[in-house]
Every structure is written in structure tokens, then in C-alpha cells.
Amino acid sequence: MRYDTPIYFQKLTPGEYDPATGNYGEDAISEDMKSASVMDTGTNTMMLVYSGIKEGSLTIHLQNHYDRLFDRIRVGNKTYGVDFSRKLRTKQVYVVSEVV
């Protein structure tokens, strides 16, 4: 298994409210890059997690645990939400689906 794909754990910070204009500022996104093994989710795993086939689902393997809080994961130009996570002894696995 090659851990050669950069993935970015994103933490979203909502924009501040401006009482003068009544609008909210832009959301701030902070990213933390890790190298991971990224592959399409297998049919058996999709049946267990989603109870059916779901397009755009990925399985991400990390060599070490990721313990910081995050809202979503970016792989390339697409963002994904975590549907299932499992901590193994030294590794961590995420099953994610694309966020529109």
C-alpha cells in the first residue's frame, strides 16, 4: 500500500457577523496536509456503510492516527465528508463521500 496521495483535513471557521451591514464575513478554512493511500471503496464496504452503491465514495488509509478536529477532507479539488471512521492499532481508515 502506497501512501503517496496528499489529502487535506479542513477545519471551517464561520465568518464574523457585521452589525453595520447585517452580513457575515467569509468563512475561513484551515488545512492540515497528510499523505494517505486513497482508493475507490469496494462494493462490499459500500453495502455495509451505505446499504447500497454510492458513487464518488473513497476509502482513505493513514499510516498514523489523526486526532485533531476537522470538518471535511479535501482530495485534489473535491471535498468529502466522513461517513465511517475506524482506528486500528497504528493506522486509521476513513470511508468518505463527496460533498456538493
Rank of each mutant, 00 (worst) to 15 (best):
T59G: 02
H65A: 08
Y3V: 09
H61R: 15
L88T: 01
D32P: 00
S51Q: 13
S57D: 07
S85M: 13
N64T: 15
M1E: 08
V49M: 07
D83A: 15
Y3M: 12
I73W: 01
V49Q: 04
G25E: 11
A36Y: 00
M33D: 00
K34D: 03
Y24I: 02
Y50R: 03
S85T: 09
L62M: 10
Y24A: 05
E55F: 12
A28Y: 04
E31V: 07
R68V: 07
L48W: 03
A28C: 02
T90K: 13
K87I: 03
P19F: 12
M39D: 10
D40G: 13
D32R: 05
K87F: 09
G22D: 10
A20P: 00
K54H: 09
H61I: 08
H65F: 11
P19I: 10
L58T: 03
E31I: 04
K87P: 00
K87W: 05
Q63Y: 08
V99G: 01
G22V: 11
T5R: 01
S37M: 13
I7N: 02
R74A: 13
V96Q: 02
Y66A: 04
Y17T: 02
I29L: 14
M47Q: 14
A20D: 13
E26D: 14
G81T: 10
A28G: 00
Q63V: 08
N64E: 15
D32W: 02
M1H: 04
Y24T: 06
E98K: 11
D18E: 15
Y50K: 04
G42K: 08
S30W: 03
Q10T: 06
G81E: 13
T59S: 12
A36P: 00
Y8L: 12
H65D: 08
Y66V: 13
S97Q: 04
N77I: 09
G76Y: 02
Y3T: 09
R74W: 04
R68L: 15
A28E: 14
K87M: 13
T43R: 13
M46Y: 00
V75H: 01
A36I: 00
K78S: 13
A20M: 11
S51T: 06
P19Q: 09
D4P: 06
D83S: 15
Y24V: 04
E31P: 01
M46P: 00
S85W: 02
T21A: 10
Q10L: 14
N64M: 11
L58Q: 13
K54Y: 09
I60R: 03
N64K: 14
Y66M: 04
S85C: 07
A36T: 00
I7L: 05
K78M: 10
S30Y: 07
I60L: 09
L62Q: 06
M39V: 12
M1T: 04
D83H: 05
N23T: 11
S51V: 00
G76W: 00
M39C: 07
S35K: 13
Q92W: 06
N64A: 14
H61T: 08
M47R: 11
N23D: 15
G52T: 03
E16M: 14
E31T: 09
T59Y: 01
S97C: 08
S37G: 07
D40Q: 12
